[in-house]
Design a protein around this nucleic acid. Structure first.
Lengths: 354, 354
DNA sequence: TTGTACGCGTTATCAC
DNA sequence: GTGATAACGCGTACAA
């Protein structure tokens, strides 16, 4: 089969020892100009590409980190991945992205693969319960950072958003617009952010001391699930006057469901959600959302990871909580122009977040 | 630093030789039930994860293929990636996805990394001119398949769509709707599909023997570029009555640009494009497009690659050309209901492709 | 400035 | 059925 040229081939051709080739290729140690030239031309001639398997085996460094997300088709995670990619690239690291599909078994399978490949570190968005996976990784002593979702009672670095507060802000917005009957279209029960967001949303209403009712529907973080949950929510009596979608895909499903039900947004019913959609994908920005700094989350995650990779392990585990940004658009309904100024601050900020 | 348990640790604990552990773990060779049990419990006790670097170094197989695309944020390539992922997964292969950003230098950098890691095969969507990269890969004797874009005069397997025909069909549609002045918003000049699509589009008009004019604008395959090209196209005299966007992002940019210019689609100007958007991202399917079977392209690419990986190298290089599907929606304008039946066939097909 | 010896963790090969 | 030995390709430690 394939038998690529090795450092020995190059060494023989250049009339030197393998280690000298290594020094030239890696710019380590002293090599005279003459020898360097001979080696370089031999490298070029053979198209020699060093075998990083061997190198990693020896050096115990793969210069690779892994990112496991729960839905790679979701622009939110795509953006996280870009943040990870950019930060890792700056540090000379390659990134392997895996998609767990919100399933623990797939997550475990990928973890086995990645740990087998001896990746230098792992960034994990845990599917469902996270404990088994976290313990598994820690048992291999591989540095890790959990992204996006809080993991109570586990000793691990975490970078996440303030879901509770983001949901609270959306709730307050709806309160201020006079809504009393609302419904939340949430993700799986056993995913922490589903719970956090429900909590924050409810707090806004309970604080307001208005006899409001908010029903919570649990499903998946998908458009299909959003569609179905919306159908159920609309069947409730009394019908909610506003919906809160726990993520962007649920919101899109809700939007379509409402359209199919002949309801106009926001005239007939208001809709707010979590996670903004990237400008490239949206023709007419319309949804009022609590936007998470996805790109920053990715970057920050790598930052924490690097501290451990480079032998600066902080003694304590850290939890970085990033703020969400409330972006008020049309889907939340009346009094928009007033609220825009009040809640969102400088109008210039808005244009970046269509 | 980290020092994971090795096959020797497990072997010692189980009172056997390392090779026996290997046999148990990999289900290769005969191992008695008794020994197997002892080994398995030792594996569990240590949480032993075999080092695939060492394994690959010895066996010359990484069970990994690489996919390099030009824009991972584009749903088209996300879908291709899923096709690749699924097919590879079926064959017990892992996939590493890299994003060249349509830049040759990034493509080369990733290629070095991947070849260094001795991936078993490479699926490449070539950025710009593809020749250097293809030769580089072939020099390492790594099996490869080119996706999405034809590469003339290179000896390599290719899986792509019939861009020329897809563009031709869109052109014919516009001809049949009476358009004579059109503009094409295309990608970079040096990307083959840009040229192919322009050719097919023009052919539709030249065949019709109507004194039609179609101007071609070259830019990037991005929403921003689509926006700008549309501005330029609208400034032309006489103004085009229909636009053809060479991919989905260009179409979205055009849509926004037209909106900003106060033009309604399709009442004031028609718009057709290449590549459909996934249902999950689109609330109201609206664009008339030539849809490419992205998922199939990914799967088929892996299929060709596997033939070479598994030692069934076909003697000739193959080129698989997949058909595009014309999906007529509102953005192309009048006479839709008639055309839907005629061009798109069974209405049931449409609902899958919102 | 260059080279030798050895080890990283695993498996191919051959022996028992 | 199981084991000993060597080799995969490279880099560290030390020597010259």
């Amino acid at each position: 089969m394939r038998s690529a040229t090795t450092i020995h081939d190059v060494a023989r051709r250049a009339g030197v020892a393998p280690i000298t080739v290594s020094r030239v290729v890696n710019n380590s140690g002293y090599v005279s100009g003459d020898v360097r030239k001979r080696v370089e031309s031999a490298v070029a001639e053979f198209g020699y590409v060093p075998n990083s398997l061997a190198s990693s085996l020896r050096s115990r460094r793969t210069h690779t980190v892994a990112l496991i997300v729960t839905d790679i088709t979701n622009p939110f995670f795509t953006t996280v991945a870009r943040g990870v990619e950019d930060a890792a690239s700056d540090a000379g690291l390659m990134v392997i992205v895996c998609n767990s599909d919100e399933r623990e078994d797939k997550e475990q399978t990928y973890l086995r693969m990645l740990l087998g490949r001896r990746v230098d570190g792992i960034l994990l968005v845990p599917a469902r319960g996270a404990k088994d996976s976290i313990r598994f990784i820690k048992k291999q002593k591989t540095p890790m950072v959990v992204l996006d979702r809080p993991v109570p009672r586990e000793h691990v670095d975490v970078v996440r958003c303030d879901s509770e507060d983001g949901a609270y802000q959306l709730g307050r917005l709806l309160v201020s617009l006079g809504h009393k009957i609302t419904a939340m279209l949430s993700g799986p029960r056993d995913v922490s952010i589903s719970v956090e967001r429900a909590k924050g949303f409810r707090r806004a209403f309970s604080e307001a001391h208005i006899g409001a009712s908010s029903r919570v529907y649990h499903g998946e973080f998908t458009q299909e699930s959003g569609y179905e949950m919306t159908r159920k929510a609309l069947a409730a009596v009394p019908r909610p006057t506003a919906l809160f979608a726990a993520n962007n895909f649920i919101a899109l499903g809700a939007l379509r469901s409402l359209g199919d039900a002949g309801l106009r947004v926001p005239e007939d019913i208001a809709l707010v959600g979590f996670d903004d959609l990237p400008p490239a994908l949206v023709t007419f920005p319309f949804l009022t959302v609590a936007a998470q700094p996805a790109y920053e989350m990715g970057r920050k995650g790598v930052e924490l990871l690097l501290d451990r990779l480079n032998g600066h392990p902080p003694r304590r585990f850290r939890e970085v909580v990033l703020p969400t940004e409330l972006i008020v658009r049309h889907s939340s309904g009346t009094a928009i122009s007033f609220l825009k100024e009040k809640v969102n601050g400088n109008p210039k900020n808005r244009s970046q977040n269509q």
